[in-house]
Amino acid sequence: MSKPNYTGTYHLVEQDNMETYLSALDINFALRKIVCLLKPTKEITHDVATGAMKIRTLTTFKNFNMDFTIGKEFTEDLGPVDGRTCQTTVNWEGDKLVCVQKGEKEGRGWTHWLEGNKLHLEMRVLGIVAKQVFQKAN
């Protein structure tokens, strides 16, 4: 069975437990408050044939870019997020993209999946889970 193509632009419509998640990443109080008010847009380019992906998370405050090939470990610079670097691998688990980030914080990573025109994102660290849902732009 072929994997879904994640290419598209998605706008945040729901968010849950971000404050607790950011606190677990040692993000300071003021920055947590700002981040929780942001309504990010995700621009995803996905080459299904090669497994290459580019995920751009765009906000009025700060942008974050992530370029990778599914199944290949790379060094991820999380400086714009929390000042850390980690060894990151993104793999398929069924139709879901599952990311494992090895570094200073245990159990860090995320899962993306599509349901119709919605992109779901579950972020994990130290047993804490935050969720975001994005609506695909027309």
Rank of each mutant, 00 (worst) to 15 (best):
L31Y: 07
D16K: 15
T45G: 02
T88G: 02
T85L: 11
I34N: 01
G109S: 08
T57R: 02
T111W: 00
V98C: 10
H46F: 08
T75A: 12
F64W: 05
Y21L: 05
K96M: 08
T50S: 15
A52D: 09
G71T: 05
K33L: 09
T89N: 00
C36L: 13
V13S: 10
L78Y: 08
F68C: 07
K102N: 08
Y6A: 00
V81K: 07
I34Q: 06
D95T: 05
L12D: 07
G116S: 11
I70P: 00
G8R: 10
K72A: 02
K54A: 11
D26T: 13
L31P: 00
K102D: 10
R84H: 08
V13W: 05
T50E: 01
N91R: 15
T60Y: 07
D67S: 11
A49N: 10
G83L: 09
Q15V: 14
V98P: 05
E76Y: 03
L38S: 15
N28Y: 12
L12G: 06
N5M: 03
I70N: 03
A30N: 01
N63K: 12
K105A: 08
V90P: 02
A49R: 06
K62T: 09
L38P: 04
G107W: 11
R84F: 05
G51I: 03
M18A: 15
I70Y: 01
Q101A: 09
F61L: 11
R84V: 00
T89V: 10
K105S: 06
D47V: 15
I55L: 09
K33S: 12
K96E: 10
R32T: 04
G94I: 03
E93M: 05
H112I: 04
R32H: 04
K42T: 07
K54Q: 12
K105P: 00
M53V: 07
K39I: 12
M1R: 10
S23Y: 09
E115K: 11
L25V: 14
H46S: 08
E115Q: 12
T75V: 15
L58F: 03
L37P: 00
D95E: 10
T9M: 03
D26Y: 13
L25W: 12
C36N: 15
L37N: 13
P40K: 07
A24L: 14
E19V: 09
V81A: 11
N91M: 09
D82V: 14
E76P: 03
Y21F: 14
V90C: 08
K3D: 04
R84G: 01
S2A: 15
G94Q: 05
N5P: 06
Q101H: 04
F74V: 04
W113D: 01
T75W: 10
N65S: 14
E73V: 04
L12Y: 05
K102I: 06
E14F: 03
Y10F: 14
L78F: 11
E104P: 05
L25I: 14
R56C: 04
N28E: 12
A49Q: 12
A30Y: 02
W110N: 02
L38A: 15
V98A: 06
A24R: 05
F61M: 13
T7P: 07
L114V: 01
G79F: 09
M66L: 15
G103R: 02
K54N: 12
D82Q: 13
Q87I: 13
T89C: 02
L22C: 13
E43S: 14
E43I: 15
P40C: 14
T45D: 09
R56P: 00
I34D: 05
T88Y: 03
R84Q: 09
G51S: 05
Y6P: 01
E106Q: 14
